[in-house]
Amino acid sequence: MIALRATDLSKTFTPPKPLFGAAPPGVRAVRPMTLEVAQGETLGIVGESGCGKSTLARMLVGLLPPSTGEIEIAGEKLGVAGPAVFGKRIQYVFQDPISSLNPRKTIRDILETPLKRLYGMGREERRKRIAEILASVNLRESFLDRYPHEFSGGQAQRIGIARALAASPRIIVLDEPVSALDVSVQAQVLNLLADLKTEFGLTYLFISHDLAVVEAVSDRVVVLYFGAVVEIGPAERIFSAPKHPYTRLLADSAPVVGRTLTAPEQKGTELPDPLNPPPGCAFAGRCPRATDLCRSEDPALTDHGDHQLAACHHPLED
């Protein structure tokens, strides 16, 4: 069963037109892409800074309107179903656990908001539901009358997860959920997320730049570059036998204990100019396998077997 489907989804940020002169070009943060996520799946989304990961996530939960395309959750389209209905189906866990919580609100106020707005629960019903949620994320009820600044990063992230669970969603988008935490706390939060997925039958979209974490928690992985999907497939295949040179570059760039840190690229390591995108494959300027075909024609996603697709004219061999 398909939990989430995004069809031809894209986002272009258009700057305001100046009083004089021509309007500046828009920035295509996400180029048209189509994704499907199965019920109960964890889909990892990776790519370097500026590739469009967070913009995609914000469109999927309705925080940003897409420029083109459609988003469906359980057969209902965003915009047609309305934000309240979508809020019951999909929720967001932010990267920075402290700043994502309202500093003027107590934890009780933060957790009660979705229960009031989405479900109209009364006081006693809210109290019972909050007690259940806190037990699920291993937090004490004595925390409810405290404020976000009184908690550690790991505790604050558990509160953020509890806030998402309060809406009883089927899908949770996790945007770098452990990147701001200490390594030992990261493991605790990841184990918690795994337990919650089993307990509540959740579907995850897990965004991260930490490839080891993504490989460990994901069933499939989407690799983004310059706002487009360049490879998608099972997690074990993506990292052990990548088809796109950019995926190989990401894997080689990840620090590994015992391996000397060396620069994987010598020049041309920056993303292309978003105001003046190059023709053809956006990765051609950094790719050692690039040819004239790559610089003139944008490759389409092609099936390479084992449910692995890559957008490359000259894919890597196993």
Rank of each mutant, 00 (worst) to 15 (best):
R248E: 15
P299T: 08
R289K: 14
T113M: 14
A187R: 14
T247H: 00
V214Y: 00
L249M: 05
P66I: 12
P245T: 12
R220I: 11
A216S: 14
D298E: 15
Q188V: 12
P288Y: 09
P16W: 06
N191W: 05
E36F: 09
Y204V: 07
G160R: 03
G52I: 00
I159E: 05
M121I: 13
S253A: 14
P288D: 08
A251L: 14
A166H: 02
E70N: 11
G122W: 02
H314G: 02
K88A: 08
L9Y: 04
T106D: 04
E48I: 00
Y246M: 07
K11V: 12
G122D: 13
L309Y: 14
A228M: 11
R140H: 13
G258K: 04
F143C: 14
V257C: 06
F143E: 10
D298S: 13
F94S: 03
D273Q: 08
I238K: 01
H244P: 13
N102E: 09
P65S: 11
G258N: 05
I161E: 01
P245E: 05
E112F: 04
F13Y: 15
K77L: 12
D303L: 02
S136E: 12
G62P: 00
L43C: 09
P255W: 09
P242Y: 00
V230T: 03
Q308E: 09
C312F: 10
A57D: 01
E231Q: 04
R295M: 09
R140D: 15
E176F: 02
N102F: 05
L196I: 10
C51T: 04
R31L: 11
D182E: 14
R129Y: 04
H149C: 11
P16N: 03
A166Q: 06
S240R: 14
L63T: 09
I71S: 01
K243E: 08
V183G: 07
S142E: 15
G47C: 08
L134V: 03
Q155P: 08
Y204F: 12
G52C: 01
V27A: 02
T34L: 12
P32M: 07
A22E: 15
H209M: 12
G82N: 07
V173N: 05
V46H: 01
A180N: 12
T42A: 04
P83A: 14
L190E: 03
E270H: 13
L19G: 15
E36Y: 06
R248C: 09
L309M: 13
F151Y: 07
V213E: 06
V183F: 12
H149I: 11
A290M: 00
